[in-house]
Design a protein around this nucleic acid. Structure first.
Lengths: 72, 72
DNA sequence: TAAAAATACTCCATAGGTATTTTAT
DNA sequence: ATAAAATACCTATGGAGTATTTTTA
């Protein structure tokens, strides 16, 4: 797990959209997509449900977003 | 700032020793050293005082260690 | 002078890019 | 049909290694 992956994840979770998240992060859509795929591989399960138009957090995704646990 | 840098930083802060921290992290001393140098460049100031025998946190180093602030 | 950190390289893994294809509405 | 994500492939950056050279107590 790397910081850039978490930055991208957070932005996608916020916007529900890979392409717009990529723009917001200043990287290309494929680069961000790859980073999320890597993160999902490490997690062992998808973090986002692909909807064709945009994207929604899975349960595993929600869990990762809620990370920091004791802090928040 | 990258996760591996923070891992190394934390271990050096804990042990007060680059070489032993490198062993503990399973990397070579030069690799860990480089990572810390990068982190210090980003910080704009040294994080450790080099003592010849081991190393001690600077004020900036203490601040970084104390990060997470609100969490505990 | 000896233990520890810094430097000088070399190598390779991977983050990121462009072009394109697949998918789902 | 079209907007959005995935895939394929390439390049370049930088993380990690070995060998060596400063440091400083």
């Amino acid at each position: 797990m790397e910081l850039h992956q978490l930055r991208y994840f957070a932005k996608v979770a916020e916007l529900g959209h890979f392409t717009r998240a990529a723009e917001a992060c200043g990287v290309s859509q494929p680069s961000l997509s790859q980073a999320i795929v890597k993160l999902e591989e490490e997690a062992g399960k998808p973090l986002f449900e692909r909807l064709g138009r945009g994207v929604r957090l899975t349960e595993a995704g929600e869990k990762l977003r809620g990370w920091g646990g004791a802090c928040g």
